[in-house]
Amino acid sequence: MIYLTRKEHFNAAHKLYNPNWSKVQNESVFGKCANANWHGHNYDLFVTIKGEPDPSTGFVFDVKQLSILIKTHIIEKLDHKNLNMDVDFMKDKMCSTEHLAIGIWNELRLHLPKSVQLHCIKLYETPRIYVEYFGD
């Protein structure tokens, strides 16, 4: 079994703010991440798929195709956007890195060929903070 990873990146604004809570409670839980006018990050995205290399190509999957699928269906929707306001698959969700990783998995899964096994979405919000989602 080989694990194949493609790295991409996007830059976006967001805030952590639960509309069902008061401003005071939001600031108490989310601190400066609750700033009303947003803040932003350079996100690094690692998409890992797994499988056995095809004997005729030596590939688990054509990584150029993987890159095109990620760029078309994920990066186009997220890059230079406001994650709370501009992204269909994050509508009405708390815009944490955890939820974003799950959202990226679900969105990308729709567009990957059935034969491709998605293994992990690893998402860096800052160089020091990242999450991993394995689909379970």
Partner: peptide
């Protein structure tokens, strides 16, 4: 968060010059 926008220009000209950096709802960086 930020956006690149020249208040003296039309929305069309801002979009033409600054492209996706002009997104009205902002984007952001580390």
């Amino acid at each position: 968060a930020h956006r690149l926008h020249n208040m003296d220009w039309s929305d069309e000209k801002n979009m033409a010059v600054f492209g996706k950096c002009n997104n009205p709802n902002y984007h952001g960086h580390n």
